[in-house]
């Protein structure tokens, strides 16, 4: 009871005793877990390096300026590749994501116990595995290059896009669908007139949102050999050419900021 009567006085507390105890217990368990994890990390850490890190950081920082501006002529090409990986990867992902989403949404799935779990499994697997790991896998199977990167981005994005899309499908206004159903429309017509117009804005929003994320992701695919500006970054790091690294980072920063701006603009225009 949040209100107790103690010697004719009503005492108000925010929570009753059991709840309060449970909350304290929860915090205690949380802190204990954190301490335990910290302990494991601390054992595996060379603390000398950590204490030394400010000096190292200053050292790297001083080597990084000024950027090597003339290197810019070497990164136009990989930058173009990076953007292509993200864009075509997103498009490829959408082609796969739309059917998966319809199979996964409770209100459109053909079978709730046979087909829906399969669709959900596809979504979870695709989402759990980072695009860099997909790239690692694909590079090892079909060889290094931009193609592997594009497929990796597509495979990673399928889960993301279908998840958001199927949630949008589940949230549609059912009465609009009912109204179309009442006209005697066929199954596909109900989809085209009742469902598709309702999820179109969500679909467009999801695609530009994912495209924006994919630009960021595709900047590092080169580290495992899957093309794009990451290749340049990794080779510059290997020869410790810090001024080139700075320039590449600046290029990435600008690309990402521009893509975020474009994506925000497009989403604003749609909604």
């Amino acid at each position: 009871m949040p209100v107790r009567v103690e010697a004719d006085i009503k005492v108000w507390q925010r929570r009753d005793r059991n709840k309060q105890l449970a909350i304290w217990g929860g915090w205690f368990a949380g802190v204990l877990l954190f301490a335990y994890c910290w302990q494991i990390i601390s054992v595996n850490t060379t603390w000398f390096f950590v204490w030394d890190s400010p000096r190292i950081a200053a050292d790297i920082g001083s080597r990084m300026v000024p950027p090597r501006w003339e290197y810019i002529y070497k990164i136009w090409d990989p930058l173009w590749d990076t953007i292509n990986i993200a864009t075509l990867g997103t498009m490829l992902a959408l082609f796969m994501a739309v059917p998966v989403a319809f199979l996964a949404a409770r209100n459109t799935t053909p079978h709730a116990y046979l087909i829906r779990p399969v669709a959900l499994f596809i979504i979870v697997s695709s989402r759990s595995i980072n695009s860099l790991i997909w790239a690692l896998l694909l590079v090892s199977i079909i060889g290094p290059g931009v193609f592997a990167g594009t497929i990796a981005i597509a495979l990673r994005s399928v889960g993301f896009c279908s998840k958001l899309l199927y949630e949008a499908i589940e949230e549609i206004d059912h009465s609009q669908v009912e109204a179309i159903e009442a006209t005697g429309a066929s199954r596909w017509q109900i989809m085209a007139f009742g469902i598709v117009p309702q999820i179109m804005p969500a679909l467009a929003g999801i695609s530009v949102f994912r495209w924006d994320i994919n630009i960021r992701e595709s900047t590092v695919l080169g580290l495992v050999g899957a093309g794009g500006i990451g290749l340049q970054l990794s080779s510059s790091l290997n020869i410790l050419a810090w001024p080139q690294v700075t320039l590449i980072l600046i290029a990435i920063l600008i690309t990402v900021v521009v893509s975020e701006w474009v994506s925000a603009k497009v989403r604003h225009a749609i909604i």
Binding site: T46, F49, S53, I56, I252, L253
Partner: peptide, 19 residues
């Protein structure tokens, strides 16, 4: 703006390999 892996590269350079 920067993908985790890029930040990780710098952290590894500063703090050494490891978690």
């Amino acid at each position: 703006s920067f993908q985790e892996v890029i930040i990780a590269i710098f952290c590894v350079a500063m703090f050494g390999f490891g978690p």
